[in-house]
Design a protein around this nucleic acid. Structure first.
Ligand code: FES
Ligand code: FES
Lengths: 146, 146
DNA sequence: ATAATAAAAGACTATTTTATCTTTTATTAT
DNA sequence: ATAATAAAAGATAAAATAGTCTTTTATTAT
């Protein structure tokens, strides 16, 4: 188990993929190409993108020349929006040792340490925008598969 | 989902509990008291402690006055040993976006950020010793339940 | 020796997460 | 209008994680 659920990993990678494949142009990209591009099981990814689409995190149209894309507002969104939508915000606010409620008045032994780490994760994901890596993804300096 | 699996959360909390309940004295503490003390399902915790016992992370004896305890070597162990035993070391070395292999030559978009965060988690868990919070746990300044 | 105690071991159940397959709906080109 | 295309929706299936229950083994006190 990593930091995020498998679902969330696929979600982030697919959104990065859609971003760099449709940025600028009025293009769309199909589920098949996305699944290959991020090395994920296609039907599972379809479910995930359905959900992201319902939530307005990605855009889509059906039919010929249809597919997924991102409008300019979506490209500016922080990654934390995706993580919160898919995994909830336990990773931002929950107790690292699983106490029902992280609190200053009844802290677990690692409270201060976790608070610091959670904040770093939160800030990092909040400061990173979906469209931020388009150039490096297009020229192959960054990878979303393997 | 938090940073650790439920199993791992229970494991860490129970080890802290055993540490502060048996430190110094030659005492033992039973599964029942531990389960109440950390608010976990007793039979599930029994399985977890069985595993930690087999791995030598906690000590135990059967029979009357039996129970779990920690020898002085165990009290000095870092928390990272527990996490590695239970959840593996994906959290220390794995790619945050789920690429099969985190690498400098084929990095994911968040590679540098994740590397930094993973290192902080690793260092924190490595520098924290199991017996470190015994005093605060005994006088109630820190909590392992609720 | 025997009975009582408490963890170890093993078999089993439930829930959640991950993944697949089929049918329906919307869009476009002809 | 019709056929082709591609996502949405819905119904299942498989695997992993979380949790329970019963029997066995080791230890101790009597
Ligand atoms: S109480 Fe555990 S992280 Fe705050
Ligand atoms: S490649 Fe993703 S964290 Fe290193």
């Amino acid at each position: 188990m990593g930091i995020f659920s498998k679902t969330c990993e696929y979600a982030i990678r697919s959104v990065f993929f859609i971003a760099h494949r449709t940025a600028g142009q009025t293009g769309r990209v199909g589920i098949k190409e996305i699944a290959v591009g991020i090395d994920s099981p296609e039907p599972f990814l379809a479910k995930i993108l359905q959900d992201l689409s319902r939530r307005g995190i990605v855009q889509s149209t059906k039919g010929p020349n249809g597919g997924f894309y991102l409008d300019s507002a979506s490209l500016e969104r922080p990654l934390s929006d995706i993580v919160a939508a898919v995994d909830g915000n336990d990773i931002f606010y929950g107790c690292g040792l699983g106490l029902k409620q992280c609190s200053e008045v009844n802290p677990c032994p690692l409270h201060n340490e976790f608070k610091d780490i959670r904040n770093k994760i939160h800030i990092m994901l909040h400061e990173t925008k979906i469209g931020e890596f388009n150039d490096e993804l297009m020229n192959g300096m960054l990878s979303l598969k393997k």
